[in-house]
């Protein structure tokens, strides 16, 4: 489930608000989100698909793997574990990891073994 938006990393672009297929976020600068970052307004609607992370250009979001419960993990712990932006790097959506976009090895797994 979506756990946190890092206020230090977030630039308030609101891309996560647009791309979340479950409409979990409230945009920055509206209603409860009176700061520079969106807020997680409907956390229990999160389907744990990790796509907000994939589309965040600033690696400011963290989705915990727990689909049913809120873990309450702190930003420091996410940063210390190197988890901010880890999905984006794995799929090659950062400049430094572009080669991962074409790294799909599924064809090897489908071959008889």
């Amino acid at each position: 489930m979506i756990e946190l938006i890092s206020p230090a990393r977030c630039t308030g672009c609101n891309i996560c608000v647009s791309v979340c297929p479950m409409d979990v976020f409230q945009p920055a600068g509206s209603g409860r989100a009176d700061g520079t970052a969106p807020v997680i307004a409907r956390q229990s609607d999160c389907q744990t698909c990790f796509l907000c992370e994939a589309h965040c250009p600033d690696d400011a979001l963290y989705v915990a793997p727990d689909a049913e419960t809120v873990t309450g993990i702190a930003e420091d712990a996410v940063a210390a574990a190197g988890l901010f932006g880890s999905y984006r790097r794995a799929i090659g959506w950062t400049a430094a990891h572009r080669e991962n976009r074409s790294a799909d090895q599924t064809f090897r797994l489908l071959a008889p073994h």
Partner: peptide
């Protein structure tokens, strides 16, 4: 095969 599995399905390992 482990590396290929990770590269085939990055989100499986998240």
């Amino acid at each position: 095969l482990w590396a290929a599995m990770r590269q085939a399905q990055p989100n499986f390992f998240l």
